[in-house]
Design a protein around this nucleic acid. Sequence first.
DNA 1: CTGAAAGCGCTAACAA
DNA 2: TTGTTAGCGCTTTCAG
Lengths: 344, 344
Amino acid sequence: MTDDVERGTASAAAQRPLTLADVAAAAGVSIKTASRALGGEPNVADSTRGRVRAAAATLGFTLNSAASQLRRGTAVRTVGLVVGDLANPFYMGLATGVEHALREHGLQLTMASSDEDAATERAIVEDLVHRRATGILLVSTLDEHGELRSVGDRGVPLVLVDRAPSGIEADAVVIDNVAGTTDAIAAFVARGHRRIAFVGDLERLSPQRERYAAYAGALAAAGLPLDPALVARGSHSAVAAEAAVRDLLALAEPPTAVFTANNRVTIGAIAAFRDVAHPPALVGFDHFELADALGITTVGADTAALGREAVAALLRRGDGPHASTTRALPTTLVARGSGERPPA
Amino acid sequence: MTDDVERGTASAAAQRPLTLADVAAAAGVSIKTASRALGGEPNVADSTRGRVRAAAATLGFTLNSAASQLRRGTAVRTVGLVVGDLANPFYMGLATGVEHALREHGLQLTMASSDEDAATERAIVEDLVHRRATGILLVSTLDEHGELRSVGDRGVPLVLVDRAPSGIEADAVVIDNVAGTTDAIAAFVARGHRRIAFVGDLERLSPQRERYAAYAGALAAAGLPLDPALVARGSHSAVAAEAAVRDLLALAEPPTAVFTANNRVTIGAIAAFRDVAHPPALVGFDHFELADALGITTVGADTAALGREAVAALLRRGDGPHASTTRALPTTLVARGSGERPPA
DNA sequence: CTGAAAGCGCTAACAA
DNA sequence: TTGTTAGCGCTTTCAG
């Protein structure tokens, strides 16, 4: 090791971390005065403040937030948003709504992705609790949320987003999946479709289960049979969904209408339809920016509103204990052509 | 004070924040043993660890990361990614690449949006510096980056992403905007286009300036005049871009080809073309998921690779000082139909 | 307006 | 395996 040599050089960056004491000494003031000057407190002579700031800049010093937080007993108010996939536009709309709502309350957002992995989710949540976050908004990848009780027990408000709580009393903000799906299937039925396919994402995700159940229910309500050959679940990527839809199209009796249970699956269906002369009718769950340009009929909720509601629930919880609530956001069905095609 | 009275009540939530001492007392061990048990250190009897954990759970205690961080002198290694718009898929691809690269190095990601606002950007960066982040990846909304010198001076490695540094020596990872744009315009020219429009985002963003300059250069190289009527800059939303493109289409001599200088502008152009029988050729900068399904020719870089490169640059910087580098990622032109339409 | 002393909650060092 | 002591860097008293 050549540490000593390196240490010897005069100018280079400080080896020992700088503290307020160093700045105070350099500026010729007491530690407390330096603290006041740098912390933006009043009652410091302008000249003193300038001298301290200059010294800090010269030395390359910055306040240590861990120390000030410890002494103050209160952190910068920060809310954590934990999602499953940073590349999914659904979460991005959510994040945008969350951020704007937080900004109105002077709260900071810090966002992390669990990559739909339970262990990663746990680590992220644990870190937020240790840091005494002002709150946590969680799109949980867990099947069972009992373990999350400890979050609230340790004083950090938690709101589950998009996925309904299971095995726990917790605030949640979700989408009215049943109404949305029922509307979509009913519209198909009204147009005379009788062979309506369902293409979904992973079954363990509660919105997917709700959408599937609503699909089955809507068929039953219309007196239509639920044909297992027309059901494809578990496509967690657009590519997988595309393959699933191709399989449906290759059936001896293909569906005349396809319901895709989230945005990724819808993208897959669009890809699968590309070279098909007379594709089935298509309605997808989740709105997306290019649906308009593509003429794709979608049903879904306002994701930014979902984010705003989640923040509102969090702040309500922070105000004091009360019964847990689950709010379901309404969906709208937006006709853009693909969903209105008649049976072949 | 009525502390004694309050303390006397049995059940309710603690008023005074809990500390390790409370847990240690409840578990009948010393503070240090409690620390070891909860901190996951070795050399604690399993029975002891269990007792301490149970006590902590009962009391609703969790370690205070500010205190442990202060004592340890080192935080959880966290990298901050600051982007301008959480809803832009370009940033989401970037975030995905960043996250995966960080995960390989055991680093955590925390992400925040400046909303393209300079003051917000400053506040976020300042907070990351105070928290002694392991590094900052910044898509800066600032025109001039001189003020960011203090970030590095205070010991936090900084890498500028997507936008070239100005007025500062700093590591940066950008896209080869000149090559990408030149390729796109050259392809138009090779197909016989002579009236090629440029539709861009805000001029103050350096990638936009580079793309515009490359557009002008490519026209000159082909011996074509730069017609100001065919240039529309400053569309920061898809809606604004749509209007700009409509204006171009309404010209007495409309363009036969349109180059859109980023993904948002491309979306606007697609919308503007919707009801047009014979739209001009279109090439857009930035790849996007639905380009395939829509048959839109795009030129762009791999955004996930951009994120990985940014992390690599950050870690290199963290290893020790060296000359600043700017790396430009190569672009590819992907023909999907819209760009290959001949002049009307 | 400025300063001295105390201590926030935790963990590194050293015992035992 | 467990306990004792000291102190991380800052801000809060309380005095000048």
